[in-house]
Design a protein around this nucleic acid. Structure first.
Lengths: 226, 226
DNA sequence: ATCAACGAGATTGTTGACAAGATGTTCCGA
DNA sequence: TCGGAACATCTTGTCAACAATCTCGTTGAT
């Protein structure tokens, strides 16, 4: 039997575990996160759980109400749009700088991602496409050298997991986003900074349109409270 | 004797106190922040101080090294530039949206700030100008309705206090920034979204130039003397 | 004079128990 | 049946003491 996770180690572990549970649907928005239960199920001390919850609250993944505990935060479609607007301008910045500063290896990997993406869409390999998508955004940010933007983009993505899930599953979505991704790659690899910014903007504006479309056309209906 | 500050209240109070101490120069980058000392001098418990330090670390104002304590984080000029680049794109976004969505009262207050700023520069009232400047940026963000951008801009500004101080003191700086601020105001009040974004970009690009100038007084233009 | 080992004091990290507040349940009267 | 008062339980917040680790000055050997 391993020792209970404590302090910095447990904090990181529990926070990651909760993030993962959210991604995989084990935790749903609104759900209560009871310190003792989490401590028990992850084999950590309550102190470690408390600190992990503080971290997640700073990332706006959970919401802590004093004396009432933590719950998984619900993100409205409106907020998801605002988050994506912020992502848009920050990724434009990164794309622009990446087009200017990316080194040979980074441009080569971008090109490789482009061809792999085409292949993935042609094969209907959804999860491979999703992984390439993630790596693409990551690589553009990395190539830009904009550490500050990188950190903030990470934070922005935190609460979005649920929406990424919903959007990626829309039929025909990969076929729609592929040319947008390829445009970003071409501009960055070709060193055309303004085109890179435009391509990133076009891509994220399209994501925003998708989010708008995913909002219920009949918003007056109130869902039942659990 | 008042009771010791504890929990949420003390946490907020201590964090604010440290932020203020940084602004006023009582704390300098690199300085150690010892939990017991802070608890004593602010009349809070060590627990409250610990939590406040966690918050400040999340804002990247202090740096916590495990088992070694917290120090005031030093921000390099390079990082200040990156921060300002991010501010630039986010404030462009807000300016654009503010031009579209600001209500009558907000436009009126913006106009008032414009005339007050002219007056302040004419009078040499530097601190009044600085306050107006802050209010201007705040109001544009508020009028944009972009809550997510607002939160991230707040975070971005945290580590910048020191540089704002240095830049604002440069002689002739207010006279230089005044027309840029007026351009932002005119565009937002006039409802010209693209112009608002351009004006915000121009202003912050100028701030970046100032930061660069403050970094190396002898850039590559002047070769080293033999 | 230099350097490594040492140790006292300082500082952060952790724990477990308890206090304070919130939530849920039962039961009574109308 | 409904409302709500009284109680029991659950959950978070707080604290003080202790443990673990680091810092820095001292000492002694080379």
């Amino acid at each position: 039997m391993t020792d209970k996770l404590t302090g910095a180690a447990g904090r990181q572990y529990v926070a990651d575990a909760i993030r993962h549970a959210l991604r995989s649907g084990d935790l749903v928005p609104g759900q209560r996160l009871v310190e003792n239960d989490l401590a028990e199920s992850y084999g950590a001390t309550r102190g470690a759980v408390r600190e992990a919850l503080q971290d997640l609250a700073a990332e706006e993944i959970v919401e802590i109400i004093p004396r009432r505990g933590a719950r998984v935060r619900a993100v409205s479609v409106e907020e998801a749009i605002q988050i994506t607007e912020c992502r848009s301008v920050l990724e434009q910045l990164c794309a622009r700088k990446a087009a200017e500063r990316a080194d040979g290896e980074q441009r080569a990997e971008l090109s490789r991602i482009g061809t792999d993406m085409r292949q993935a869409v042609a094969d209907g390999a959804w999860d491979a496409y999703s992984a390439l998508n993630q790596r693409l955004h990551e690589l553009v940010v990395e190539a830009s050298g904009q550490e500050v933007a990188r950190r903030h983009l990470e934070r922005l993505n935190g609460p979005m997991v649920r929406f990424q899930f919903r959007l990626a599953l829309r039929p025909g979505r990969p076929a729609q986003s592929l040319p947008q991704h390829l445009a970003i790659i071409d501009a960055v690899v070709g060193g055309d900074a303004p085109a890179a910014a435009r391509a990133a903007a076009a891509h994220l504006d399209d994501v925003i349109d998708q989010l708008r479309a995913s909002a219920d056309p009949a918003p007056t209906r109130t869902p039942p409270r659990p």
